[in-house]
Design a protein around this nucleic acid. Structure first.
Lengths: 164, 164
DNA sequence: TTTGAAATACCCTTAAG
DNA sequence: CTTAAGGGTATTTCAAA
């Protein structure tokens, strides 16, 4: 287990300066930019830039460099949110349920919610038939599930990161 | 407007082969890997690999290369989901409402939902006081909002991409 | 911490099979 | 799709400020 991924409960938040924020902003837009190009735009030396970048990585601020895929281009044109309520007598199965759902194809996000002990499943699938199929196969048939409520997503947008 | 970002409504989905999937899988884990390194692991020539990568970009499969930031390390330790119902008489304000919310600091995702004309706002903030503040300032005070319902997020995980 | 320079390593393009 | 090679660029290290 990398040190960076240890519990951070109660730990003082990492404070970013302008250079850190600039790095994150640029890498958020294009994580494949070269170190030299980043350094130039920031007005610092490439070696400094590299040091900053490595610092952000070891501090755990940067979890990973990744790629954003467009699901609709690959035929997953429909997103849906499925609210799931677990049966009161099946609360001990919630951990297993969570793991099970997370692995299902089409599931893009899974929220375990407080308050009324619910899950929210975010799926990206081909069409409404797929949603129905997903609910029937994975939820309605599951004895731990008390009820579900599905909403189609008309629009889904990312917010602007608050730390930039 | 790039050709790749045009409407794809009804367009035949892009079909991926093993090499494409391999590329996406590796880049999802680390988008800063060099082309040569990707090519080697895939067992193809670097030039071929680069061509594949560019093809995925122009096809719009790859939206962008980006970075995954850990909000909790920066002090945004609490996530919440806020369900918003818009007043029946204020449906014409939904577009504006959407834009307004998306720009608020702390908002990481915004879903515009069908069915019962609702929004779901996903926020990452410091603590529960911030959630309360967010709801009071941006939602309760908004005349277009009929009601809100907030759930704290105990766990939030990304699913495995179905196209890999 | 940051820098500059130097050495190494690597990448991109092109052309040809 | 591949190989091969050229010119060019990026990365990394390290001593010094």
């Amino acid at each position: 287990m990398p040190a960076a991924s240890k519990k951070i409960r109660g730990r003082a938040p990492v404070e970013l300066d302008d250079i850190d924020r600039g790095l994150l902003r640029m890498l958020t837009e294009n994580s494949r930019r070269t170190n030299n190009s980043l350094a130039e735009e920031l007005g610092i030396a490439p070696s400094t830039c590299l040091a900053r970048l490595n610092a952000l990585r070891s501090a755990g601020v940067i979890r990973k460099f990744t790629v954003e895929v467009a699901p609709e281009v690959l035929g997953h044109a429909l997103e849906a949110l499925i609210f799931v309520r677990i049966r009161p007598g099946a609360r001990h199965l919630m951990g297993a349920f969570s793991e099970e759902m997370r692995a299902k194809p089409g599931v893009t996000q899974l929220f375990f919610l407080g308050g009324t002990d619910d899950f929210l499943i975010h799926v990206a699938v081909r069409d409404s038939d797929d949603v129905r199929q997903f609910v029937l196969d994975n939820l309605s048939a599951n004895p731990a599930v008390a009820s579900t409520q599905t909403s189609l997503v008309f629009e889904h947008s990312q917010g602007t990161a608050p730390w930039l």
